[in-house]
């Protein structure tokens, strides 16, 4: 086995990819981090803060997708593994969203009953 292994089969079995991919992803991670930092610093009218939060969340999701897809090599893994990893994480995001919605409700109820 060790004797028949050529550079080509090593590349297929293991995660060897052109270095340019990594530098591109690295660059994008920097750009997206700077973008989210800039969005945070720019003074927004408080009524437009939702735009700020949406952009920051979007950039974070993009960054995490880049890391998982290219740095953690999921792009090149078999689909059985990819699905097994990605599907539970969707439920984590749902859980965070549900918790956030529920606490908004709690805050509203408190304001309605106690005022302020």
């Amino acid at each position: 086995m060790a004797h028949t292994t050529t550079a080509d089969t090593v590349a297929q079995e293991h995660q060897v990819h052109p270095l340019g991919v990594y530098f591109k992803v690295w660059g994008w991670l920097f750009v997206l981090s700077i973008a989210s930092y800039v969005v945070d610093i720019i003074a927004f009218d408080p009524s437009l803060n939702w735009i700020k939060w949406t952009l920051i969340t979007l950039f974070a999701l993009l960054k995490s997708t880049l890391i998982v897809t290219y740095f953690m090599h999921l792009k090149w893994e078999r689909s059985s593994l990819v699905y097994a990893i990605i599907s539970p994480v969707v439920f984590i995001l749902l859980m965070v969203a549900f918790f956030a919605a529920e606490s908004g409700h709690i805050a509203d109820v408190r304001r309605a009953i106690l005022g302020g």
Binding site: I85, I92, M95, A100, S103, I106
Partner: peptide, 30 residues
């Protein structure tokens, strides 16, 4: 590798729970 992924997904749930708890505490904060 399979076991590292297994650990990472379970660890993602730990941090997911923390971030959910943080979101809940912050949004409902008096």
């Amino acid at each position: 590798k399979a076991m590292m992924w297994f650990f990472i997904v379970s660890d993602a749930f730990v941090f997911g729970a923390f971030i959910a708890a943080y979101a809940a505490a912050r949004i409902a904060a008096p």
